[in-house]
Design a protein around this nucleic acid. Structure first.
Lengths: 208, 208
DNA sequence: CGCATAACTTAACAGCGTTAAGTTATCTCT
DNA sequence: AGAGATAACTTAACGCTGTTAAGTTATGCG
């Protein structure tokens, strides 16, 4: 009578505490600073405890990112409803960059490191996949509306082009920001310029 | 005499053997498979020996990449002499992509991982820096020749845009190639499309 | 009250990069 | 030729990592 519920609630609490501790290390000191022992120390448990709540470190960080990805997911959901497919594409790109700049550690873990193995499992609805599908939809709508040059008729290639263009700007920044021999320009500005120029590059010329 | 020379030669030999062993692990099993112990085992020495020839693992891998970077450096040198600045820029991009696709482990180590700390040292002539300067030159020449839209008048930003665009395509591929829910297109083709579209995106319209 | 089960800890394993100290061989110099 | 320096290499360890088997403690239930 309610005791199992309370237990479940307690379980959720400690789960959340673990995630919060991990997040703090994650965003403060970067992805490499997140060690099982450091998390454990912060919440005053032994490292082993964490393994009673998460399969392993990878699973922990994946769930952490999954939760924090909701901001991006929401943005994508609402932007995905914009009528004009080209404007929609552009706005998706800008939201993507915003997420990367605001959550560099999350971004690095999700988009710049190789996952240990493809989880064979057919987990159909990861937010990553979902975001890609929203991007794909926008691209496809633009193609169908005849907005792009005829050589860009493959939605997947075009989606990967747009994704790649913006990923490149933010990824380079995250990794090479403190190499002072590069006169870095503001990431957001560069990314905006990238969004504009890459869309213009695929757009059918204005004079039809 | 000449014994010191012979010594130096022997020293170079073992150095090279270490680098070769590291390279084999590097390209065969990826950057994470390169451990000091694995290298040592392969050349039948103790791990400690490696430390008599290289300051640490980072230095070893840096020298390895530096040596193997010569192919890219040569390509950049000769392409850098192409007269037409826009064509030059395009060809630089394609050579860059070729290197990344042919040496993914090298690329990953050099452009997708954070170096432990900026080496404060003013080592003026790293090939990376040199390649960036060649890129910068090409971009600047194009700007000076009035080939690009007036809003792209900052050589650094434009260079970072071009670099980022191509980096994004290859980096995404390296990290996410085996995520099967993405219908990946051929990297080289996508990269070529990227080079074309991004150049078109910054080019002054044809009709002046 | 007795027992199952969940929560948590202790102690360890195997692997990593790295280093202090010790050994062995080689070359140099008187 | 013998003494001593020096370079090359090894042994053994330190501290760190992720992870796990086994043991302990507390909690809820019949």
């Amino acid at each position: 009578m309610g005791t199992t519920e309370r237990r479940a609630r307690a379980r959720d609490t400690i789960r959340t505490r673990i995630l919060d501790a991990a997040r703090e290390l994650f965003v403060r000191d970067g992805v490499d600073a997140v060690t099982m022992r450091a998390i454990a120390k912060q919440i005053e448990y032994t490292p082993t405890t964490i393994y009673h709540h998460f399969r392993d470190k990878q699973a922990l960080l994946e769930e952490l990112c999954l939760r924090d990805l909701s901001s991006l997911a929401h943005a994508f959901q609402s932007i995905g409803r914009i009528e004009d497919p080209v404007d929609r594409l552009r706005r998706l790109g800008l939201a993507y960059v915003d997420f990367a700049v605001d959550h560099p550690a999350h971004y690095q873990f999700m988009f710049m490191t190789t996952k240990p193995s493809v989880s064979t499992a057919t987990d159909t609805a990861s937010p990553e996949k979902n975001a890609y599908l929203i991007l794909l939809d926008a691209v496809r709508a633009g193609i169908d509306a005849g907005r792009y040059r005829p050589e860009f008729n493959d939605p997947h290639q075009l989606a990967q082009l747009m994704w790649g263009a913006l990923h490149g700007v933010v990824a380079l920044q995250i990794v090479k920001a403190d190499e002072s021999w590069i006169e870095w320009r503001d990431v957001r500005e560069t990314a905006r310029a990238m969004a504009d120029l890459s869309i213009r590059g695929v757009l059918r010329s204005e004079g039809q």
